[in-house]
Amino acid sequence: MEELDILQIPDDGPVALIDADSLLYYEMGKPTLEEAIQGINNRLLHMLAMCGTSKYAGFLTLSRCFRYEVAKTKAYKHNRKGGSKPIIFYALREYLQQEWKMEAVRGLEADDLVAVHAKPSGTIVCSPDKDVLYQVAGKHFNFRTNEFIKTSKLEANKFLWKQTLMGDATDGIEGIPKVGPKTADNLLKKVTKGFEKIVIEKYVEKFGYYEGVCKFAETFKLVHILKTYEQVENAIGLDLSGSLQVHDIKHLNINYG
């Protein structure tokens, strides 16, 4: 990665909600921990500068999420390669928790945490993950491409039902066989409401009533990013309302490099 130009961090602004999982993978291949830490610091400082704020809340995925229990047809993320990660990965994860005050909630992924705390105004969700960028309504900063994206409620809703139709190969989630992005887009192109009925009918058409409804329910729960405190409580039995801890970069002892 090219060296980042760290802009002057503004004093205030919106709250940057950071899905930090990818940062670990971006930097874990560095020769030394010091270089990896500096790389993460540079990325985060640049992110905040681009978002025009010194305020943020960062999130990590530390444990198996509830989706592993939901998945019955095939294990959640069964297609991911196993193997151990380098020690630097775990050191960086602890560094983000200790120095950047990033948080995790057992049973949830970082995707869920940025989504549930996102607001129509006053927050910017920072993530390179397509699920977050296009399934969560609001303003986003894709820190992989250095681009801002604004997703409307209709666009976010349509993307969720598109994923329910076709599944998500990245996470090993099966949808309706032979339904890919183009087919799903064509099915939903002119739809603005009643998505659930249309998608269930397609599952029933392919699998029959019982199996179709069961497969639909499983796929929906797997691709659906939790977006409200009520959804979180229903999924893992935990009330997260009022739990958002916002930090200010000015109060951290971070090496600006």
Rank of each mutant, 00 (worst) to 15 (best):
T32R: 04
P14S: 07
N186S: 15
I124Q: 06
G13K: 03
D111T: 03
L17I: 06
L7Y: 04
E2R: 11
V70Y: 13
I37H: 05
M47T: 15
S22Y: 12
F148P: 02
E233G: 02
P31V: 14
H251P: 03
K153W: 11
I37R: 12
F148N: 12
H247R: 00
E99N: 14
G39N: 06
N142S: 09
E34T: 13
V191H: 09
L7Q: 14
Q163R: 13
H78Q: 11
D168G: 08
D248E: 05
L7V: 14
E218S: 02
G194S: 02
H46M: 12
N146V: 09
M102W: 02
S243R: 03
V105A: 00
M166Q: 04
T73K: 07
E35T: 09
V213E: 12
D21H: 02
E27K: 11
C214M: 15
V179N: 03
Y256E: 13
E174F: 13
R144F: 14
A217E: 13
G208T: 14
G237C: 10
L238R: 14
L45Q: 01
V15H: 10
L154V: 10
N41I: 04
L240Q: 09
I254Y: 04
R64P: 04
Q8W: 11
K250F: 03
P177Q: 08
E109Y: 01
R80V: 04
H78D: 13
L33P: 05
E109K: 07
I236K: 10
K158A: 05
V232S: 01
W161N: 03
A118H: 12
D131H: 01
E196W: 05
G167C: 01
N42E: 11
K77C: 08
L252S: 07
Y90N: 05
K190M: 05
G242H: 00
D248N: 15
I225Q: 05
V132Q: 02
K158Y: 07
T53L: 08
W100P: 01
E27F: 13
D185I: 12
K178M: 02
V191G: 02
F66I: 07
L238A: 15
K182T: 15
I173V: 05
Y256K: 14
H78V: 13
M28F: 06
E196N: 10
S121E: 10
L165G: 10
V204D: 04
V223M: 01
Y56Q: 00
P10Y: 00
H224C: 15
V105F: 01
Y134H: 15
G13C: 03
H117C: 01
D129N: 01
P31I: 06
F159R: 12
D239W: 09
L44K: 00
G83L: 09
D129T: 11
E3P: 06
M28Q: 13
M50Q: 13
S241C: 02
W100C: 01
T32S: 15
S84W: 09
Q97D: 00
I249K: 07
F216G: 13
A156L: 11
G257N: 12
K74L: 07
Y210H: 11
N253L: 14
I87R: 12
L113S: 02
V15W: 09
